[in-house]
Amino acid sequence: MGVFVLLLLPWAAGGAGVCGRCPGPVRNDSLVAQFCAFPSGTEGRCCWERGAHAERLLGLDLSNCSLKSLPLELAEATTAIVLDLTENPLTPLTSSSFLGFTCLQHLAVPLALECPGGNGAWEQVTTRNSSRLCQRQRNPCNSSGELAWPCPENAACAPAGPGLAQCLCESPFHGYKCLREGTFPVLLFCGILGAVTLSLSLLLWGTQRRKAKTL
Rank of each mutant, 00 (worst) to 15 (best):
G2D: 10
L6Y: 15
L7T: 06
L8D: 15
P10H: 08
W11N: 05
G14R: 01
G14A: 12
G15K: 00
A16S: 14
G17T: 11
C19R: 00
R21Q: 13
G24I: 09
R27Q: 10
D29C: 05
D29R: 09
F35K: 04
A37Q: 08
S40E: 14
T42L: 04
R45V: 06
R45A: 05
C46T: 09
C47E: 05
C47P: 13
C47N: 12
C47S: 13
E49Q: 11
E49I: 04
G51I: 11
A52T: 15
A52E: 15
A52I: 15
A54G: 15
A54H: 15
L57N: 02
L58C: 07
L62W: 02
S63C: 04
N64S: 10
S66V: 14
S66K: 14
L67F: 10
L67M: 12
L67T: 06
K68A: 13
P71Y: 03
L74P: 00
E76M: 02
E76N: 06
V82C: 06
L83I: 04
D84G: 07
T86F: 00
T86N: 06
P89K: 13
P92E: 13
L93G: 03
L93H: 05
T94R: 12
S97P: 02
F98W: 07
F101I: 02
T102D: 03
T102R: 02
L104V: 04
L104I: 04
L104E: 02
L104Q: 01
H106M: 10
H106G: 03
V109C: 07
L111Y: 00
L111P: 00
A112E: 14
A112R: 10
P116A: 11
G117H: 01
A121L: 03
W122V: 00
V125Y: 05
N129D: 01
S131H: 01
S131L: 01
S131D: 02
R132M: 12
L133W: 04
L133G: 03
L133N: 06
L133D: 08
C134V: 07
C134M: 11
Q135L: 12
Q137S: 10
Q137P: 05
P140M: 04
N142C: 06
N142K: 07
S144I: 00
P150Q: 08
P150F: 08
P150W: 07
P152I: 13
E153T: 15
E153P: 15
N154M: 15
N154Q: 15
A156W: 12
C157I: 06
C157Q: 04
C157L: 06
C157A: 08
P159W: 01
P159E: 01
G161I: 00
L164R: 01
L168H: 14
C169N: 04
C169Y: 00
S171H: 11
K177G: 07
K177S: 12
C178D: 03
P185R: 09
F189S: 13
G194C: 12
A195I: 06
V196P: 02
V196I: 13
T197N: 11
L198E: 05
L202K: 08
L203E: 05
L203D: 04
Q208I: 09
Q208W: 10
Q208L: 09
R209N: 08
R209M: 09
R209L: 09
R210E: 05
R210P: 00
K213R: 14
K213M: 08
T214E: 14
L215D: 11
